[in-house]
């Protein structure tokens, strides 16, 4: 059950997206998001959809896996769609359905569809660009590097990145630990899956207490181990992996910038089926 999470989001591979500089991937994700939210008409939405499909193909991650990333937000998606469908007021578009208190306008249908499309594309695009193709460690490294100018403002960027790295590093460990403790308590006849809510919450006590105890112990051990190896924060610290930008990074950057430009142009010049502003 929990082991599905242990695997995390990262899928090992050697596709172009895997090899891109993680810092560039963060920048590309920002551009991608901008493009998605700038898109305002059918042409632009089609364009972002095609671009997203191309990204998925580039990542060489199976479609099944990619679609799985959408599953957790399915309910949110349906909810926003319904909201858009029912609560778009009559400032344009034909009235499609008028039944009791429900009034559905043409524009409401379009809004619902495009909102859903946006959210789905956003989740798929960002997962493919970042979480599926970048190890969490590379990601925090890249964030640290991108945020490093903030050091001038005396913001402890390195320390935040280190905290994030440690947190990420210990997620699988904690999950493994939880699973072990759960199994140990199950072996003693604990039951986590039946009974009232109250009973189930109480059944968590035998898991949470050992988990807290060992987490604190682990934190103390880790701090000691880091101090033993003379860790004193970010000052003067060098990195094992140094990222360098390659031609491919710049090519992608240019392509993405062109994409955003295309959307802006499309919004202005190609008002094909202008739907909403």
């Amino acid at each position: 059950m929990l082991s599905d999470i242990t695997l995390g989001q990262y899928f090992p591979g050697s596709s172009l997206l895997h090899r891109l500089d993680p810092r560039m991937k963060i920048i590309l994700s920002a551009l991608y998001m901008a493009a998605i939210f700038l898109a305002k008409n059918a042409f632009c939405h089609l364009f972002t959809a095609i671009a997203t499909v191309l990204l998925v193909l580039l990542s060489r991650i199976s479609l099944r896996v990619v679609l799985r990333s959408v599953r957790p937000i399915l309910y949110v998606l349906i909810f926003t769609m319904l909201l858009n469908l029912f609560f778009t007021s009559a400032d344009g578009g034909r009235l499609l359905l008028d039944f009791w208190v429900i009034r559905i306008y043409e524009e409401g249908v379009y809004r619902a569809l495009f909102m859903a499309l946006r959210v789905v594309l956003l989740v798929i695009g960002v997962s493919v660009l970042l979480t599926y193709t970048t190890t969490p460690i590379a990601l925090t490294d890249a964030i640290e590097s991108l945020l490093s100018p903030l050091k001038l403002l005396r913001i402890p960027v390195h320390e935040f990145a280190m905290m994030m790295t440690i947190a990420l590093r210990f997620i699988p460990t904690l999950i493994e630990e939880t699973e072990k403790i759960m199994n140990a308590q199950k072996a003693r006849g604990a039951d986590f899956t039946s009974g009232s809510i109250f009973r189930r919450v109480r059944a968590l006590v035998p898991i949470l207490i050992p988990l807290f105890v060992s987490s604190f112990q682990r934190a103390i051990d880790l701090a000691t181990a880091m101090e033993c190896r003379c860790y004193r924060g970010g000052k003067g610290r060098t990195k094992l992996v140094r990222y360098t930008l390659h031609a491919r990074d710049f090519v992608m950057l240019v392509l993405f910038a062109l994409g955003v430009a295309m959307i802006v142009f499309g919004n202005l010049r190609l008002p094909i089926g202008r739907l909403y502003s």
């Binding site: 140990a184 003693r188 050992p210």
Partner: peptide, 24 residues
């Protein structure tokens, strides 16, 4: 008995912890 079973101890007293399975 799992590996390093001491990590499963949780109750207030040893007595209650040892009896956990029986109470279940």
């Amino acid at each position: 008995v799992m590996q390093y079973p001491e990590y499963q101890l949780f109750d207030e007293t040893v007595c209650r912890d040892v009896g956990f399975a029986l109470r279940n």
